[in-house]
Amino acid sequence: MHIVVCVKMVPDTTQVKIDPITNTLIREGVPFITNPFDGPAVEEALKIKDKYGGKVTVISMGPPMADSVIRKAIAMGADEGILLSDRVFGGADTLATSKVLAHAILEVSKKEPVDIIMCGKQTIDGDTAQVGPGIATRLGFNQATLVDKIISLDLERKKIVVRRKQDEWHEIIEVTLPILLTIERDANKPRYPSVPRRIFSEEISIPVWNNYFMKLDLNSIGLNGSATTVKRIFAPEKQQGEIYAEDENGNGVGTLVGVIIKKLEEWKIRSIQNG
């Protein structure tokens, strides 16, 4: 069983501020973290490995410092990692990103065939949820998106049963391997790494693949290979603002409800029931 997990380094968006004048993101001093959907993807892969054995390879495309998210996955228990990093990969949209990732996975599978690819459902910065399906399409893999539970795996019949999370219901499907799954954030609680694993992950060397190695057509990757361009990023205009309230004893909730009701009345949204 060989599982490849794609992880992305993203800015901690809860700490990203919008410059009120230029309306652009202030990225300075914002720490980078593993995309919160990707930890659960790694965890699902490790759970399969714990049960059935095999190997977990982690791949990330990003700047050189993105090796940190790979190391984190290795600290959790992944076996190896590959960083895809080259200036020419930069500025990629989901099309170009999935091309590079798909190609890298193809390369990896030459040494050891890949049975399952796992992606996070989406990222917290780009938010498109397209990269996973893009990879599956390019590699000709089956795909199951929005997975919040892996129910069973039959290695002999090469079948996997997963639960997909829909808005108001769940869907349980059986699919044939090889397959790409995109994992929901609440699928599990990713494991906390042990110190020996952390030290191992800090010392292991992570191979970096650039385009000199990958030999992809420069017109199909990076900014040049992207079908979309981001024109402007801005924060939606804030209309209401924050409401902060507490009484002299420091009790927030009760007082806050009162204040909110008053505000709503001021804004003439008198009764929610009455529409």
Partner: peptide
């Protein structure tokens, strides 16, 4: 904590 990673869940 450091070797067995066994601790009350809420600590994660």
């Amino acid at each position: 904590i450091m070797e067995e990673v066994k601790f009350p869940e809420e600590l994660i």
